[in-house]
Amino acid sequence: MKINNKSFDYLDALEAEAIYILREVAGQFERPALLFSGGKDSILLVHLALKAFRPGKFPFPLVHIDTGHNFEEVLAFRDYLANTIGEKLIVRKVEDSIQKHRLQDPKGRFPSRNALQTYTLLDTIEEFEFDACIGGARRDEEKARAKERIFSVRDAFGQWNPKAQRPELWHILNGRLDKGENMRVFPISNWTELDVWNYIRRENIMIPSIYRAHLRECVRLESGQLLAVTPHIRLEPTDEIVQLPVRFRTVGDATCTAAVESSATTLEAIIEEVIQARVSERGMTRLDDKLSETAMEDRKKNGYF
C-alpha cells in the first residue's frame, strides 16, 4: 500500500504498534516508568516514546537499575541521552540494596548481580509507587519470553505467574490492577533482533560505541566465549588473555555479557552479521541463561524483568 510516497511496511507496522502501546500506558496508568539500561532495546524505546509524545513531555521518567557492573561507555551514553532529550532520569543502585537488605554479593570469578537487580527494582517501584514499568524485552529472545503478554501483571512480590496470565485479544490492553500489583509493559514484544537493527539503521538512532567492533582485551573462557577484562571480574594467572576486535550483541552486566569477535564497525556490517549469525542473541552472549533449561523462567517468576 503506497501512501505519502512511501509504503507502510512491517517496520512501520511494528513502530505504530509500539507507539500505540506506549500511549495506552500513558492513558491507563497514574505513575508509569520506563526502565532504561542504556542498551539498544531501551534506547529504541526512548526513540519510540519521542515519537509517541512529542512535542509534549514523556508521561514517565527513565529509570536505571544500576548493577555497578556496567560498561563505562554505556553509562556515559545513558547520561548523554537523558540530558539531550531533557527527560528525568532516576538511577538506583544494586550496591545500596545489598547494604539495605544485607544481601550476599555474589562471589566467584565472574560475579553476576543480575539476580540482585530484582531487589533494587522492587525497592524502586515501592519508593516511587510506580504502577507500570516499561521494558524492552522481546519475545524472540527466549522461550519463556515468547509467552509473555504485552501488559504483564506482577504481584506485590514482583512475581510473574505464567498460568494466570490475562488473555490479550485484538489490540485491547487491560491495564487495571489490584492494590500492590504492578504492570510490566513490553512495547517491542513482536520485534526480532534483526528488526531492531534494521530500525536503528533506518532511523539513524545513536547507540553506545560498544555495539560496534572495537579492539578490546578479553578473557577466553573454556566455553570459547569472550569476556571483557574489567575490574569486576577476577583473573587467574592461567587465563588466556587476548586482544581482539569484538562487539557486544547485548549490553548487560559486564561480568556476564560476552563479546563476539567481529569486524563490523558500521550498522550495515552489523546487520549483515546478524543475518549470518547462526546463534541466538542470548545463547551467544549471556552466561546466566546457560545455568539451566529454565533459567529465564525461574528468574522471571522471581521478579526479574
Partner: peptide, 12 residues
C-alpha cells in the same frame, strides 16, 4: 512528528 496529508489503518 511530521505533517502528512493522509494516514491509513494501522498507523499511529
Amino acid at each position: 512528528l511530521q505533517e502528512v496529508e493522509t494516514a491509513i489503518a494501522g498507523q499511529s
